[in-house]
Amino acid sequence: MVMRILMAGSSGFLGTRLVDRLTSDGHQVTRLVRRPARTPDERQWTPSAAQLDPAVVAEADAVVNLAGAGVGDKRWSDDYKKLIRSSRVDTTTTLAITIAGLPAADRPSVLLNSSAIGWYGDTGDRTVEEDAPAGEGFLADVSRVWEAATRPAEDAGVRVVRLRTGLPLHRDGGMLQPQLRPIKLGLGGRLGSGRQWWSWISLRDWLDAAAFLLDGDYIAGPVNGVGPDPATNADFTRELARQLHRPAIIPVPALALKVALGGFAQDILTSTRVLPGVLTKAGFKYRHPDLRSALHAALTE
């Protein structure tokens, strides 16, 4: 079914690619922007002031919210941590309340709202699925209030999907991009102990999953946007180096990461072993179910 989709966060690493994917599927995508609209497919809003024209939302069959300051873009100063939180909560709250305030006949049928596997905190070697409670730490706390902000739309009867994205793999962004140069120079290696679990997903599979969830009118609630085969950082680094035909023998000590990255280092060193329970049960088919094929796609596609 062709849908009219309203999207927040369309200019980010995932958002730009999801716009391309959805429009190539024939959907009509309208992008929410914080500056004055410049093109027919843009609408202005000010989520920090809870300003969004309800008529813009009423035109949509579905709403996608990927907005949020990048957790790895800067050191985590107190001000930047506030921005990480507010950029997610303000956008989600504004959308959810606006959706709930519309007459039932004018509400979009689904809100696909971004979240993160940071919800689970540090799981060590223990695998978790969507029914696991929130963990501890800054990102877990952010994820908790972020997801709670969708509640007005859910209470109004709209299908709400909270997509807990893991580590999308592509050479042009995400967690993979900053690792490529050191390894290509022969200076790469495991981060910290290397025993922490990373729950990755290929970019193509993430895009497929987002489209699948928009169409899947029986899926609601939290959904782990991860691949089926999480890997330790040591195994991840070893496979990446193998595909780049470089050694990966110089480990980066945890202390060095903390000095260089501040609070964000904790996210890199946290072990989050997450499985895609909902997607698997719903019959979602991965193009890249294993790390080798996912990294190959990330480096070549």
Rank of each mutant, 00 (worst) to 15 (best):
L257R: 09
L257Q: 11
L257T: 07
K258Y: 05
K258P: 06
K258I: 00
K258H: 11
V259K: 02
A260L: 13
A260E: 08
A260V: 04
L261E: 02
G262W: 07
G262D: 09
G262V: 11
A265Q: 02
A265L: 11
Q266E: 14
Q266S: 12
Q266R: 06
Q266D: 14
D267P: 00
D267W: 01
D267N: 04
I268G: 02
I268V: 15
I268C: 11
L269T: 13
L269M: 14
T270R: 00
T270W: 04
T270Y: 12
T270S: 15
S271C: 00
S271P: 05
T272I: 08
T272K: 12
T272G: 07
R273I: 03
R273H: 06
V274P: 08
L275P: 00
L275Y: 08
L275G: 01
L275H: 09
P276S: 05
P276F: 07
P276I: 00
G277V: 03
G277Q: 05
G277C: 03
G277N: 01
G277W: 04
V278R: 11
V278M: 10
L279S: 10
T280E: 08
T280S: 13
K281D: 15
K281S: 15
K281G: 13
A282I: 02
A282F: 06
A282N: 05
A282R: 07
A282P: 03
G283I: 00
G283H: 03
G283P: 12
G283V: 01
F284A: 09
K285Q: 14
K285S: 11
Y286L: 12
R287K: 14
R287W: 09
H288C: 14
H288R: 11
H288P: 13
H288F: 13
P289N: 05
P289M: 09
D290C: 05
D290H: 09
D290I: 06
L291Q: 04
R292P: 06
R292V: 10
S293H: 08
S293R: 01
S293I: 14
S293V: 14
A294W: 00
H296C: 09
H296D: 13
H296M: 08
H296T: 13
A298N: 11
L299Q: 07
T300V: 04
T300R: 12
T300E: 04
T300M: 01
E301G: 13
E301T: 15
E301F: 13
